[in-house]
């Protein structure tokens, strides 16, 4: 079973990811391919979309209001396009849940959170070697980053400008 992880650790996945041509379910929460959003949005489903990492994130923008979740594909942990896809989806104004789907590793969790992601869906083999406690330990290992304008961790540049409390 794929394992869903968020900042609190293992989580239950309420979403069903639909195959290309599978029929839409009558109720529940479904993640559909990009080219089926229009069809799916006419239903009463709670709706999510799965984005490959080589399409323009703008393609999903017209549907933001209707989408509760966007799942971004990470075909391998070394393919970092998804980080920019996530960042851009947030910059475009998406406020729903953002999911990284694929064999990412716990060492990337902090980066994912800082690019706007909320959760990761791991394939079995990664989930087996990297139990939830590896994931909950990852954020905060580096308490502050240098970059500004990021979700998740704070910025050293901003912290430097704070008056010292002590």
């Amino acid at each position: 079973m794929p394992q869903l992880i968020d900042h609190l650790g293992a989580a239950r996945d309420i979403w069903t990811r639909l195959a290309e041509d599978a029929p839409l379910p009558g109720t529940g929460s479904a993640i559909v391919p990009l080219d089926r959003i229009e069809e799916a949005s006419a239903t009463g489903l709670e709706l999510g979309v799965h984005l490959p990492n080589d399409v323009e994130p703008e393609a999903a923008a017209p549907w933001f209001e209707r989408l509760s979740l966007i799942s971004v594909d990470f075909p391998s942990f070394a393919d970092g396009r998804g980080f920019s896809v996530g960042q851009r989806l947030r910059a475009l104004g998406f406020e729903g849940r953002l999911r990284a789907s694929g064999p990412v590793i716990s060492d990337q969790f902090d980066y994912l959170l800082a690019c706007g992601f909320d959760e990761v869906l791991l394939p079995d083999d990664v989930a087996e070697r990297q139990p939830p406690e590896h994931w909950t330990a990852a954020p905060g290992r580096i308490t502050l980053g240098y970059q500004r304008g990021r979700t998740g961790r704070g910025s050293i540049l901003d912290a430097r400008r704070m008056p010292h409390s002590g």
């Binding site: 942990f77 970092g80 920019s84 960042q87 800082a114 980053g145 240098y146 970059q147």
Partner: peptide, 13 residues
């Protein structure tokens, strides 16, 4: 400083 552990650009092509 800006590039150190940049969350978005640490797994580039």
């Amino acid at each position: 400083q800006w590039s150190s552990l940049h969350p978005e650009f640490t797994f580039l092509g």
